[in-house]
Simulated assay, not measured.
Amino acid sequence: MLSQVSPAFQFELIAQDGNARAGVFHTPHGDILTPVFAPVGTQATVKAVSSRQLTELGASLILANTYHLYLRPGSDLIAEFGGLHQFMNWHGPILTDSGGYQVFSLSSIRKVDEDGVTFRSHIDGSTHRLTPEKAISIQEQLGSDIIMAFDECPDPYDPKYNQKAMERTHRWAERCLAAQTRRDQALFGIVQGGVFPDLRARSAEFISSLGFPGHAIGGLSVGETKEEMHAMLEVVTPILPADRPRYLMGVGSPEDLVNGVLRGVDIFDCVLPTRLARHKAALTMTGRINLLNSVNTRSQSPIEEGCQCYTCQHYSRAYLRHMLVAKEILGATLISIHNLHVLLELMRQARQAIIEHRYSAFASNFLENYRLP
């Protein structure tokens, strides 16, 4: 078993305001200023956005998906290219999930046992086997900076099964640690436990005891209420070590980012900004906009007044609506650029507010003025 905290991965806590934290996570491919939102590049691409555009947006971390890349094009092929950084031409930090969430979402075509999971590919129906050891091996081939332990993500409301899945997740976490061979990757453990405070506390204590260089909070934003998510964060984050980054998996709406930072979370990721862009919706600092609405037909305004993103600096709502009506793929790119900018800028503003010890007021003001969808 490798020592869990490599010199290549150090987390510095720069400032704290209440539970909100501003830090720096050092990685071999660059520093990550936290709190941070990571755009999701499921299949080694942030949909409709190039690596150069991500750099211009100021993205410092992106996420790729182990399950999808294992099935296509295959981790062996990516390893031949020297890993994900070279394969996708992104030279900043990359985080890969373990594939656990995707496998467990395939409830009708997978079977779980103590050793791992047998599942059928959603692409061609072929049968595959994923274990903690294999999840680590695949991620080592991918060469990402932050890798995730293999976990079981159950329905959040079943208490009996959540305990069973949590205990299995703990055993799998130990196996992942034993399987890791690369020191240039930070392996994060994952806290589970559904919406049950006692299970969440037990899981956070156990995962913390294993010495991971960072910790993820899984099994949230999977159907529970916002209030339940907040309650679980309030249980978990005080238990997790203060000197390690905390990652809330799969969460990315603006109000959730602000509330997550308020409760001590450092890292977020979500497909939301690019998915919304492909479905005709734009994020703003005060709520979502449907760009297909007829009111935008002749609008010369940008998506959001005062926004400094490339899209708002060069294109009108009328043009973007035309792109959508005409089904031009440029529309998805331009709206994705804007939506990503909103979340990245929100985290930049949040970080500054923490450093200036005014995050509580910042969060209150944002949440009061943000219209929920």
Score class of each variant (00 low, 15 high):
74 G>D: 03
232 M>C: 12
119 F>K: 07
283 L>K: 10
162 N>Y: 01
333 T>Q: 14
362 F>C: 02
243 D>C: 03
291 L>C: 13
325 V>D: 05
23 G>E: 00
331 G>S: 05
316 S>Y: 08
260 G>H: 06
274 T>N: 02
226 K>D: 09
188 F>C: 00
38 A>S: 13
344 L>T: 03
115 D>K: 15
10 Q>N: 11
337 I>N: 00
39 P>A: 12
49 V>K: 05
207 I>E: 05
36 V>W: 05
229 M>C: 07
330 L>Q: 07
286 T>R: 14
236 V>H: 03
273 P>N: 13
88 M>A: 11
127 T>S: 14
175 R>M: 13
70 Y>H: 15
83 G>S: 11
292 L>Y: 15
304 E>P: 08
5 V>S: 08
194 G>F: 11
48 A>W: 07
182 R>N: 12
320 L>R: 01
358 R>D: 13
59 A>D: 07
23 G>V: 01
125 G>A: 03
272 L>I: 15
243 D>A: 10
231 A>R: 10
338 H>G: 04
61 L>D: 02
89 N>H: 15
364 S>L: 06
171 R>D: 15
186 A>E: 06
316 S>P: 02
282 A>G: 11
26 H>Q: 08
261 V>F: 10
368 E>F: 02
168 R>M: 15
134 K>H: 05
337 I>D: 01
33 L>S: 06
229 M>G: 06
28 P>E: 09
326 A>G: 00
324 L>N: 05
242 A>T: 10
111 K>E: 15
63 L>Q: 06
141 Q>M: 11
